[in-house]
Deep mutational scan, measured.
Amino acid sequence: KTSLNPNDLGPLPPGWEERIHLDGRTFYIDHNSKITQWEDPRLQNPAITGP
């Protein structure tokens, strides 16, 4: 199984920011909706992941 390299996905969507949590995990901030999440928003785009 090959793992996706986030660098291959291009930039984050407008308004998003990638940060490192105190425990070392990466999380994502959506400044548009004022939410945070652990999942990379680029992986949730149907145009990238397919049907």
Rank of each mutant, 00 (worst) to 15 (best):
K1T: 06
K1C: 01
K1N: 12
K1S: 08
K1D: 08
K1L: 06
K1I: 12
T2E: 11
T2G: 06
T2W: 01
T2H: 05
T2I: 14
T2L: 09
S3Q: 04
S3I: 09
S3N: 15
S3Y: 12
L4D: 11
L4V: 10
L4Y: 11
N5E: 14
N5M: 14
N5P: 03
N5L: 08
N5Q: 07
P6M: 15
P6V: 14
P6W: 09
N7K: 12
N7I: 09
N7F: 11
D8V: 10
D8R: 13
D8A: 10
G10E: 08
G10Y: 02
G10H: 03
G10S: 07
G10N: 15
G10R: 07
P11Q: 11
P11K: 08
P11L: 04
P11R: 09
P11F: 04
L12F: 11
L12N: 03
L12W: 01
L12Q: 01
L12M: 10
P13Y: 13
P13V: 00
P13C: 01
P14I: 07
P14Q: 09
P14G: 08
P14A: 14
P14E: 14
G15Y: 03
G15T: 03
G15I: 04
G15W: 03
G15V: 02
G15N: 13
W16D: 05
W16E: 05
W16L: 03
W16M: 04
E17N: 02
E17F: 01
E17K: 02
E17G: 02
E18F: 01
E18A: 11
E18C: 07
E18P: 03
E18H: 02
E18K: 06
E18T: 07
E18R: 09
R19A: 06
R19S: 10
R19I: 09
R19C: 10
R19Q: 05
I20E: 14
I20N: 04
I20P: 07
I20K: 15
I20A: 12
I20W: 07
H21K: 09
H21Y: 10
H21R: 10
L22P: 15
L22K: 15
L22I: 11
D23R: 02
D23T: 13
D23Y: 01
D23S: 13
G24F: 00
G24A: 02
G24C: 00
G24Y: 01
G24N: 02
R25I: 01
R25Y: 02
R25V: 03
R25E: 08
R25M: 03
R25F: 03
T26Q: 06
T26M: 10
T26C: 12
T26I: 10
F27M: 12
F27S: 11
F27K: 13
F27Q: 14
F27I: 09
F27Y: 15
Y28N: 01
Y28I: 07
Y28W: 13
Y28D: 04
I29F: 14
I29V: 14
I29R: 07
I29S: 06
I29T: 09
D30C: 09
D30R: 03
D30V: 00
D30S: 06
D30T: 01
D30P: 00
D30F: 03
H31A: 09
H31D: 02
N32S: 11
N32H: 06
N32L: 09
S33V: 05
S33D: 07
S33K: 14
K34A: 09
K34Y: 05
K34N: 12
K34H: 11
K34P: 00
I35T: 14
I35A: 14
I35L: 13
I35P: 02
I35E: 09
I35Q: 14
T36W: 03
T36G: 08
T36A: 05
T36Q: 05
Q37E: 01
Q37F: 05
W38V: 10
W38N: 12
W38F: 14
W38G: 07
E39D: 11
E39V: 07
E39G: 09
E39Q: 05
E39K: 08
E39H: 10
E39I: 07
E39S: 11
E39W: 04
D40N: 03
D40R: 07
D40F: 03
D40W: 00
D40K: 02
R42P: 04
R42Y: 00
R42A: 02
R42N: 02
R42D: 00
R42T: 01
L43C: 11
L43Y: 08
L43I: 07
L43A: 13
L43N: 09
L43Q: 10
L43D: 10
Q44W: 07
Q44M: 12
Q44D: 14
Q44N: 11
Q44P: 10
N45H: 12
N45W: 06
N45M: 09
N45R: 13
P46V: 13
P46G: 14
P46A: 12
A47N: 14
A47G: 14
A47D: 15
A47R: 13
A47M: 08
I48M: 09
I48L: 10
T49N: 06
T49H: 11
T49E: 10
T49Y: 06
T49Q: 08
T49I: 08
T49L: 11
G50I: 03
G50Q: 05
G50W: 10
G50V: 12
G50Y: 08
G50M: 06
G50S: 09
G50L: 15
G50C: 06
P51R: 05
P51M: 15
P51L: 03
P51T: 14
P51W: 00
